[in-house]
Structure formats: C-alpha cells, structure tokens
Design a binder for these strands. Structure first.
Lengths: 140, 140
DNA sequence: CTTGCACCTCTAGTCGCTAGAGGATGTAGG
DNA sequence: CCTACATCCTCTAGCGACTAGAGGTGCAAG
C-alpha cells in the first residue's frame, strides 16, 4: 500500500488539511495510522469518508446529522428510515429558507429601487430599515 | 421623561435583553444613562435604533454593515451611495444563496424520492452522498 | 547538506449571540 | 416596614464549524 499523506487526502477529498484534523478530533473520522515520523497515513476508505462528509456539508447537513448518516453507512443492513428522515428534514429546512430568502429579496429590491441616489435623508434603504411598518412583504 | 428599563426596551424593539447589552458592548448602541441603582435607562431614540438593528439583522445584514448603515443614518446629509451599495451587495448575496438552495432542494428531492425505504445498502440518500458524481445538478 | 515545503501539536480567534453563576435593585402586597 | 419575587447587574464560558498562527519536526530534491 502506498501511504496517503494528509495533504494528498485533502486534495483528493476536497476537504482542507486543518479540517481533516478537526474531523478526526471530533471523532467523525477514525484516527489513521502514523508513519515512523508521526505523520498521518490515510487509507483510500478515509478519502471516501471525507468526500462523503464534504458533500453532506455542502448540502447543509449539520455535523451531528452527518455522524448519524455515517453510522448508517457503516452498517448497510440497517433500515434507511433514519437517513430518509434526516434528508426529508433537511429538505423542509431548505424549502423554508428559500421562501424566507425570496421575501427578503423582494424587500431588498424595493429598497434598492426606491433609492434616489441622493442624500441619506431621502434614502429609502435607510428609511425602510428604520421603519419596519414600511415593509411590503410580511416575512420576519 | 419616563425611564425605559432594558426589559421595556427589549419588549418594544423585539431585541432580547442580553442582546441589547451585547450591542452596547460592541458599540452599536451608545451606553445609556444609569439610574441611581446602576440600572440602564434608555431613551425612545434607543428603541428606534434597536428596531433598526433588528430589522437589518432579519434582512441578513452583518453587524459591520449595520454599523456603517447606522453612521449613515446618524448623518442625513451624507450621500446615500454607501447605503445603496451595501443593500445591493446584500441583494446579490441573497440571490446567489437562493440559486444555490434551489439546486440543493432539487438534489435533496431526488435523494428522497429515490429512497425505496428499504435497507441502507439500497438507499439512494446514502449513495448519492457517498458519490458526488451522481449529482444531477451541478452546484457546489 | 541545505533549502524549503509539508507535516505535527496546541491555543486562540471568528460571528452573533446565549446560558449560567452569583449578586444587587425595584416594586407590589401584606 | 418587611418580604417576596421579578428584573436588573457583571462576568465568564459556551455554541457550531471551522480558521489562523506560533513554534517545532519530518522529508525529499538538488
């Protein structure tokens, strides 16, 4: 077996070097074996695991959710109901966040459009911020 | 003048009591005068300022952006170009975030739909997470 | 053999709060 | 006036998920 350094692992998985060490420190990744000079030596399986974590993080899953997903992955005979539930919960979160951001976007657009590019005392941006009652879109 | 306690200020502005103290500590809100017994005594203007901050936070502006917006509000003769720029930048951020979340939503939906509710080794949720190449939507 | 990069551990910082300890003040009822 | 109780005070530490930096060691190429 060729030894995979932490730098290689980082490059291949797309996770930064300090983040790899961080994941090890919180027990998301098993501590790898070490070289004679005390340097980490990873296995290909570790790269896959790191890629899994990275992808899940990109999808916005929290570390604790990922921890659960990883234990599910480690034991393929389990029911995937938990994985399904976690993904569904995340989907609901994302949908809510999108709705909220759309309302936000509308309000920011109104603010920016209303700005006459003059002085602050006529600025709609400042004005709207100061007076929530001027919000056209009920969101927050 | 009637004295406004921190609790009243919090209730009227919708900012929590510890958060009001936090805003004071970071200099976003001027330190108010104190009662004989060392308790904070706010002015109506402080309530407006807190409401402004809260609204801006709800719109996702960062504290440093709010600090700038507040100094602009404090001097109404300035050009509102900065306020305009800050709001526009925030708008761009929000639009980007929405796009990214939409892609995410699509991917999560594919994952959840593909789940046969069986065992983990057939679970599309786990599978897609493990292999980024299966992503139908190029986003991250 | 030296240069220089990659690696090691450890601590502290980021952002925007939030929680809790331990004590002082203010107010309403008896 | 006394007591109960809510509210206030300061201070420190914690959250999530890293990121930055100090100060030192390993290793491979020229």
């Amino acid at each position: 077996m060729k030894k995979i350094t932490i730098g290689e692992a980082a490059r291949q998985s797309g996770v930064k070097v300090p983040t790899v060490r961080y994941y090890e420190s919180i027990g998301l990744l098993a501590a790898p074996s070490r070289s004679e000079g005390n340097q980490r030596s990873f296995e290909p399986a570790d790269i896959s695991r790191l890629a899994f974590i990275r992808h899940a993080r990109e999808l916005g899953f929290e570390i604790e959710a990922i921890r659960t997903l990883l234990t599910l992955q480690d034991d393929p005979h389990q029911s995937c109901a938990s994985a399904d539930a976690i993904a569904k919960a995340r989907l609901v979160e994302v949908e809510q966040r999108i709705r909220s951001l759309m309302a936000l976007k509308a309000e920011l657009e109104t603010m920016v459009e209303g700005c006459g590019h003059g002085r602050v005392d006529q600025c709609r941006v400042i004005e709207v911020l100061a007076d929530h009652g001027q919000c056209t879109h009920p969101h927050h």
